[in-house]
Write a protein that binds this DNA or RNA. Sequence first.
RNA 1: GGGCCGUUAGCUCAGCUAGGUAGAGCAGCGGACUUUUAAUCCGUUGGUCGUGAGUUCGAUUCUCGCACGGCCCA
Length: 494
Amino acid sequence: MEKTSSVIEERIKKGQKLKSMGINIYPAGYRSDITAGEAVERFGNMDAETVEKESKSYAMAGRIMALRDFGKASFIHIKDGTGRIQAYIRKDRISEDKFKIFKLMDLGDFIGIRGSFFRTRTGELTILAEDIALLTKALRPLPEKWHGLTDVEARYRQRYLDLIANDDVKEVFVLRSRIIQAIRDFFIKKDFLEVETPMMQPIPGGATARPFKTFHNALGMDLYLRVAPELYLKRLVVGGLERVFEINRNFRNEGISIRHNPEFTMLEFYMAYATYEDLMVLTEELFNHVLLEIRGTNVIEYQGETIDFSPPWNRISLIDSLKDMADVSDEVFKGREQAVEFAEKCQISLSERDGHGKILAKLFDHLVEPGLIRPTFIIGYPTEISPLSRRNDETPDIVDRFELFIGGREIANAFTELNDPVDQRERFESQVALREAGDKEAQFMDKDYVTALEYGMPPTAGEGIGIDRVVMLLTDSPSIRDVILFPHMRTKQV
RNA sequence: GGGCCGUUAGCUCAGCUAGGUAGAGCAGCGGACUUUUAAUCCGUUGGUCGUGAGUUCGAUUCUCGCACGGCCCA
């Protein structure tokens, strides 16, 4: 049994009183003529006299966010999806019954008001009520008006309260939607086809990550929530869909942090006849398009750092970045042993399974990544840690791949796709060996995918971009939880 | 998984150092007030102090475990 606070009891009583007066406290619908935003747009620039001359009677609806009571009159703030407007309710302007109903309304209730606009003595655009209607009774009080809701746990668990109390939170999610729309527009204009591929996969592929496992009762088989859509999107390229993209959720059964949520949104796109070098240019173009669309500039502030997105962005190989930005000596690149020794000196934990390439990548993660604030393409990844990427023609132990770093974080991963089925089978086999040796993140053999490659995939390049992290950058949000409406939390035991 | 910090009224926070069973502001309730802007003025209700144990005559306060959350590390 949940305890009922006196504040709630008080509101329940008011609801009962209203019901006894014959008032439906949860009526259906309400026809309004104007929103708060439209009212400001229409009358915002008019002087007091003009407002009164021009304003007809309008109906508007919203939530009562502030209430200043003078006994026989009240000022209230009404908030709707477009903004906030003040209403003035006078006893001598509405019927006695309606005034009684109004007196039983609380902060947080939804109200419908009919009236005409005027300007108050202090100049605020205000609707003078001729008629009011209770649209929904709120039984619980809203968070405090001045400080809002600051308890982080409550903000995430009860996001609706966060949205009611904190206007800037809503703004983040409006921007999130616009960012995704801008990305979608960009690809549609470039003749990409938006597709949807399975979230539930019999073999989880396309990324080095631990999957969530589930079970399909009717088929009697295990299924995995996808860690990436990659292998399905490339099957589509085999099928002749030469430019495809998908913006959707991936699931990774890993830790939760300021930049990881178990489910997160990924953009992946594939472009036949392109190379990873083409994608670097395309990526610069994409970000500049989105930034211009959303922020009107390609220079932004993120957590106190200024980030300039003007192309071209710096390109540097993984090895050179370690040499130049972390003073790693040449020795470390000569062999695994030297790299192990150096990593241990840096107190970076390794696994016995880690090959030379994996160790270099770990060194990079610790020593270089946090410092890559300006957009930077890191190229020249070891083949060992890139089982789906095409080998570099000159240096087969690296691949034609880049990762993009902005604000000290990985934002994108792209490569020219491996379309040689024989090489692909061998790469899968070495992943399987790693898995058998205990690496839970290693990839699975996907024979059907190899079969698809045997039919022939045209030379193709593909890229994945972490949408949540892009939204973090563009909304100056420090945590991924700030850009995900309902971030994952442990269920609270009562 | 480890370290540090937090959890007190519906919300925002004091109180805990030096143990004597809780305070403020907002919201609520009662009253005054028909142009206010966090309205104002007078009065007032509301708390198993996250949870379980221990120490103690006595624990919101000290100790330990647990739960949930935050940050950092792995």
